[in-house]
């Protein structure tokens, strides 16, 4: 139980991701699917940032402080930069995918006058 409280945030992160995933799978509306996709992606980004976080650490920009100099930084006082870079990439990839998804949704709407998946399928099988 103590462990559960220790890692409670991971539970929230997983719930967030699953909300997004559920929306991608189950929503009828194409825009909602896109928003769900973005939520799923931010959930994953949050997961990565969480595993790189450190207690009582500073931002990953070196400064001259008391127990911490440019040339000899205290590693435990600087947040992990690697996960942050990976997630910068993931955010940008995410917005690129969102843009393409929205463009496709717009084209679909132009043809079918609807964002509703079932309606579109009905239109197309007609």
């Amino acid at each position: 139980m103590e462990e559960f409280i220790d890692k409670f945030n991971y539970v929230l992160v997983v719930i967030l991701m699953m909300t997004g995933l559920w929306s991608m799978l189950a929503q009828n509306n194409l825009i909602k699917k896109c928003i769900g996709m973005a939520i799923f992606q931010t959930g994953i980004i949050l997961f990565f940032i969480s595993i790189g976080a450190k207690n009582n650490a500073l931002i990953p920009i070196l400064t001259e402080t008391a127990n911490h100099t440019y040339n000899d930084p205290n590693v435990n006082e600087v947040t992990n930069p690697l996960t942050q870079i990976l997630m910068l990439t993931a955010i940008v990839v995410g917005v690129a995918t969102l843009g393409v998804g929205l463009a496709l949704a717009q084209k679909v709407h132009q043809q079918n006058d609807s964002f509703d998946e079932d309606e579109i399928l009905n239109n197309q099988t007609k």
Partner: peptide, 18 residues
Amino acid sequence: IWTTMGAVDVAFTEAAVG
């Protein structure tokens, strides 16, 4: 959230992009 975790660059990007 990301700022509290010290990921300022990510937070900045998310503010601009997300």
